[in-house]
């Protein structure tokens, strides 16, 4: 599925300073029953966001109108648990294009990159600075620069570099995906397959 190209994103951010945010929190299993990729944003953080009677939980950050933006900032070990890509879909569908944390779970990170969300891993110190900046000013902007691989807290100018492999960076900045790449090398795959014992 096509996604928006990612180059430079300047936006305010939504803070979620909780560790080990697992994919069951991002989207509970009972909302995985669709056969199309539509509407998952409505159930993003469903059980943290809504009471049992579907009324919004006022103390949850997504229900607090002072926070908005295309960047979600989470605590350490964001996205642990299930491989459900629905978690990344829900985050994208809600309107986020970038998730920042000091540590990501592997599968979530891969899924995000595959659908056009940029996971930015920063140092624990820098993560704290981001949380502090947002606490001081909910409209505090962050600038995520993919070509330069930097993230900047705009108000203070504090900056940190982040890692991403060259292949994925190229894909994200151009809106390419892996399937295009793999389709183009089917001949090579066929030769490889012919040699397999199983």
């Amino acid at each position: 599925m096509a996604y928006d190209k990612f180059t430079i994103l300047k936006s305010s951010a939504v803070p979620l300073p909780i560790e080990n945010v697992d994919t069951d929190q991002i989207i509970p299993a009972r909302f995985l029953k669709a056969t199309k990729r539509e509407g998952f944003g409505d159930n993003l953080f469903r059980d943290w966001r809504y009471n049992g009677d579907d009324t919004p939980k006022q103390d949850f950050v997504l229900n607090n109108p002072i926070y908005s933006g295309k960047i979600l900032v989470g605590g350490r070990n964001f996205g642990s648990g299930s491989s459900r890509e629905h978690a990344a879909w829900a985050i994208y569908d809600y309107g986020f294009r970038c998730v920042i944390s000091s540590f990501f779970a592997d599968i979530f990170k891969g899924n995000s990159l595959n659908i056009g969300i940029l996971p930015v891993q920063v140092s624990p110190e820098f993560l704290n600075k981001i949380f502090e900046a947002i606490e001081a000013d909910p409209n505090a902007e962050l600038e995520v620069n993919l070509p330069e691989q930097t993230i900047t807290i705009v108000s203070t100018g504090e900056k940190e570099s982040f890692d991403i492999n060259g292949y994925k960076k190229h894909n994200l900045t151009n809106g390419f995906d892996d399937i295009d790449y793999l389709q183009a090398m089917k001949g090579e795959i066929k030769e490889f397959e012919a040699e397999r014992i199983f």
């Binding site: 299930s82 491989s83 459900r84 599968i107 891969g110 595959n114 995906d177 892996d178 399937i179 090398m185």
Partner: peptide, 19 residues
């Protein structure tokens, strides 16, 4: 475990892109 984008990769090319 893999995500759904990768399920599509395996179906269409029997490969995934994996560091």
């Amino acid at each position: 475990g893999i995500g759904t984008s990768e399920v599509e990769m395996v179906l269409s090319s029997q490969c995934i892109m994996q560091p």
